[in-house]
Design a protein around this nucleic acid. Structure first.
Lengths: 279, 279
DNA sequence: CGGATACTTGATGAGAATCAACCCGGGTGG
DNA sequence: CCACCCGGGTTGATTCTCATCAAGTATCCG
């Protein structure tokens, strides 16, 4: 396993013991460590399988640090690279002609950004870091040669593309729910699954994005997100303190997320009943 | 340029002269022609650039015919292949636990299906043909060797993945619009652009999907789609006869699509005004 | 012709967008 | 140190769109 020294390298494994004061997490420790990356570390971050990993050469790769609230690339900028998140979280968004910005996703560790700009001259979206982050940067020229020479990279990229398509599709599933609480519930469940697959606690986590960005991502008003949070909390499904979320009743949350169409009386009671009996 | 004999091979170039009776298009002509495909034809369908095309070998590829309303793969089925649309149109959808089916997209010529199943054991979605169609089928084993040996294929696949991500993102943009007419307008505009990029008329086309599927894709009720169609038509933006759509005022339609937030009076008047002055 | 399916149109109720006020923590500057 | 502002978050009141139910029309297929 390759070792890399980066201040934002490892997520805190013990999530349940984080202190809210630490969470904004801007300059924890000295941020002066030089950033060095290797191809095999990149492949590992991307989730390549073992066969590809051991074939990977130990060539250096450029690892760029992105400060909180800094933007990695902006919309309309000529697209000359793709970015793989090494650590941290981003928000990818598109601002339409009226200035309204629609958040497309929140890429985190292992996600590839700007994939959609590969066959376009300009970026269709912008990306800003929600916290201290670092990304592998692969410019077009290196991209070509890597696909040719590094056997595992092309495969890993295909897999990452596959995940990206899956993610975007999942987002449409979230937005397909008409009820606001259902959308939020689906989002939280997806986030929970992602946490679990990253080896973190699936029931207790800290959201890196604000209500506004979350609302934009889910396609509702930010006030509605606020209300939905208090709704879910009042039903005993979760406990929420600003951006810190603890899921109390996973099955109840799933039941709430299931209701594609509106819950008139029966389905609402069913959801509440499900939450009652599991509790 | 490779030549392939398939009854559904070429889209009718003269779109403005199609007759509605022909459109359901079920068994137009003898459907007995043997299906043969080649790698370079596949690459051309996928939109590979010239450099890759001339390097492509003329190896045979399996081309599968899919009848209208037949399903190419169903949800939960073990994923063993990807599919590239050679001709026709599909609907890709996901049915949730309540039986409600959410249409994720309408892949057409050159689109790759089941990309999201590449890194999963089972298909997360199902696909059924909306008309007589044909697809290139690439099983996992061939997929691996193709990526290794055919230099252009891996590149073409990366480009196709890029487009797929872009498509999915665009869908979220469509669904982000709150007003139903805006969603429909955005969908029609995207469809128009796609028509144009396929060399067909961007102002006059025939929708292959029903209101129900369209509504599901856009995240609204089918009745609302119906109403939105009549709304847009009554504003003089387009002329619609069942599934045949003719865009009369492209700029007006764009103005309608722009309104992210609801149009109270002024924006509605603006849209109508824009439509007036262009007409 | 009968049944089914697709599409349209109408009436009604409910949920959410919008406007607005308020609370709170953190930063800034006096 | 306090006053102040500011952005983020919560909550309330009101308007309005859309989902839903329902009925009607048209079209296709057997």
């Amino acid at each position: 396993m390759p070792s890399i020294q980066t201040s934002t390298n490892a997520m805190p494994q013990a999530v349940r013991s984080f202190s809210p004061a630490l969470m904004p997490g801007v300059p924890r420790g000295a941020s002066t460590s030089a950033l060095k990356g290797t191809l095999d570390d990149l492949l590992q971050v991307m989730g390549a399988d073992a066969a590809d990993l051991q074939r990977a050469a130990n060539v250096p790769m450029t690892l760029r640090r992105v400060h909180a609230k800094a933007q990695l690339f902006h919309e309309g900028q000529p697209s000359e690279a793709i970015y793989i998140v090494r650590a941290g979280t981003f928000k990818v968004y598109h601002t339409d002609e009226e200035g309204y910005e629609h958040v497309v996703g929140f890429p985190a560790q292992g996600d590839v950004m700007a994939l959609d700009a590969l066959n376009m001259p300009h970026h269709p979206t912008a990306a800003t870091a929600l916290e201290e982050s670092s990304v592998y940067l692969i410019v077009r020229r290196d991209f070509q040669s890597l696909c040719m020479n590094a056997p595992g990279f092309s495969r890993a990229l295909h897999m990452a593309s596959s995940r990206a398509v899956k993610r975007a599709t999942d987002l449409t599933h979230v937005m397909a729910a008409v009820a606001a609480e259902a959308r939020l519930a689906r989002f939280l469940l997806q986030h929970s699954e992602r946490m679990a697959s990253d080896g973190l606690s699936p029931r207790h986590f800290y959201l890196r994005m604000g209500r506004r960005d979350l609302a934009s991502n889910l396609g509702v008003a930010s006030e509605t997100i606020s209300r939905s949070f208090t709704m879910l909390a009042s039903w005993g499904l979760l406990k929420v303190a600003c951006r810190e979320v603890e899921i109390l009743d996973m099955d109840g949350l799933r039941a709430c997320a299931r209701s594609t169409r509106r819950q008139t009386d029966n389905t609402a009671d069913e959801a509440r009943a499900a939450q009652k009996l599991t509790h």
